[in-house]
Amino acid sequence: MDFYFWLFATMAVCAGIFTIAARDPLPSALGLLTVFIACAALYLHLHAPLIAIFQVTIYAGAILVLVVFVIMLLTSPDERLSLLQANMSYRIMGVVLGACIIGLLAAGTKGLINIVGSKALPDGFGSPARFGDLFYRNYLLHFEVASVLLLVALIGGIYLAKKNL
């Protein structure tokens, strides 16, 4: 009975449900923040401290801040999301897509139980040194492709935002 896992897993699921069901946009964003923090705690539990730090720094600390920024700029404190949420076609589509995703996940993880067991982790698993090693030797192409993707996004953002280039 892994108390740590169950605590953060239930926290993540409850926060996820709160994110979808909240009336106001900003508490919904806060629910997403809780999901990210719970996931980071779970990554810590899986001996991946660097991924946990990246989750908090990048996801919760930059991307979600940008989302919150947009919410603050474009909505007023009295606005409710109920108008969008009341749309019947959105709800039906949400249920259908949710069911499809759950089905895909279930199909994908069906055989996982047989593979995963308790294993001895290699030495230095999850440490920054090992991480850097893998990143810059075995997975260098993936790293460079990700940076090109970010460059493309940057150029797109500048183009959209500037009035006269």
């Binding site: 806060l30 923040l33 401290p49 660097l50 730090i53 908090v56 720094t57 919760a60 600390g61 930059a62 801040v65 919150v68 440490s127 920054p128």
Partner: peptide, 18 residues
């Protein structure tokens, strides 16, 4: 004394925006 050291502070610092 964690292996990720000050990255923890960077993460926590980005949380103080909220």
């Amino acid at each position: 004394d964690v292996s990720v050291g000050f990255l923890y502070i960077v993460a926590i610092g980005s949380m103080s925006v909220y």
